[in-house]
């Protein structure tokens, strides 16, 4: 070899380099798939392998995006949908947790309500859509209610389950100090279940999106779900695809935000 004395790397350094290379390859592959997919889509449309009238095409999606951005429509619909989702999942988490606390507080109530919760959980919530519309009107409120219903029930079940997994002996410990029921809740149950509640948050983000888009399909006059339905009705597939793409980006963004929030908080536990 030409180099007489190659730089000797320690085993650990070699290990790190190996990991870096591996990561680089994974990332490159990921991005390549995305680019390849869009290129293929565009080429297929260009060469008339597929009919862009029903499949749309990346160039048209891009144009639509530019247009929607220019006339401000994109941001209005995005804002409405994201707003509904945030409100839905916050309400779902808070109300769900409060009901879980209530059920923990009264074992009698919890036993009485158990079958109702099971039924509500099994029932596909979209079936309640028409009733919701009748009750709260066909608008923003109906969408939020739908999202709240879906995430709220799951929160009740998960958080209530978490409360029951709290170590019984920890409760005995505070009881031996003479703790009241409220103190047991404050000092043991809630802090011990905190990870469960944060986890519920993470699940609820996803479920709230389901609820919101479902709700928008059913009732709304604005939002990404509305754009998708409207686009498909008037056969503007460019609009449909663009909305779905924006939706995907927004959903991932929100998931990452919650995951980041979780990491920040859990670090202290």
């Amino acid at each position: 070899m030409s180099n007489k004395e190659p730089l000797k790397l320690s085993e650990h350094e070699e290990f790190l380099i190996k990991i870096k290379k591996e990561n680089f390859r994974v990332h490159t592959a990921r991005i390549s798939i995305l680019i390849l997919f869009f290129c293929l889509w565009e080429i297929a449309a260009e060469l008339s392998w597929i009919d862009p009238f029903i499949t749309s095409r990346p160039a048209a999606i891009f144009d639509t995006l530019v247009l929607l951005n220019a006339n401000g429509e994109l941001w209005r619909h995005l804002f409405i949908t994201v707003g509904e989702t945030v409100v839905g999942f916050m309400l779902g988490t808070i109300i769900g947790t409060l009901i879980a606390v209530l059920l923990w507080w009264s074992p009698f109530l919890s036993r009485v309500l158990d079958p109702y919760i099971v039924v509500l959980n099994s029932l596909p919530k979209v079936a309640l859509g028409p009733i919701i519309i009748v009750w709260v009107g066909a608008g923003l409120m109906a969408v939020i209610t739908m999202s709240l219903l879906i995430s709220g029930i799951i929160t009740i079940i998960n958080v209530y389950g978490g409360f029951h997994e709290v170590d019984q002996e920890k409760i005995i410990l505070v009881k031996s100090f003479g703790a009241t029921k409220k103190q047991i809740l404050q000092k043991v149950i809630l802090p011990a279940s905190f990870p469960t509640i944060i986890n519920a948050l993470k699940i609820n983000v996803g479920l709230s999106w389901v609820g919101v888009i479902m709700g928008e399909f059913l009732v709304s006059k604005a939002g990404l779900g509305y754009l998708i339905v409207y686009g498909s009705q008037v056969f503007k597939l460019n609009l449909v695809m663009t909305s779905i793409l924006v939706l995907a980006v927004a959903a991932v963004g929100m998931y990452l935000a919650v995951a980041y929030f979780e990491k920040k908080i859990i670090r202290h536990l």
């Binding site: 920890k170 031996s176 043991v188 536990l269």
Partner: peptide, 14 residues
């Protein structure tokens, strides 16, 4: 009365 069990039951969040 002070009551101490087999495990220390220190709360990990405190």
């Amino acid at each position: 009365i002070g009551y101490m069990q087999q495990n220390d039951h220190l709360f990990p969040w405190r």
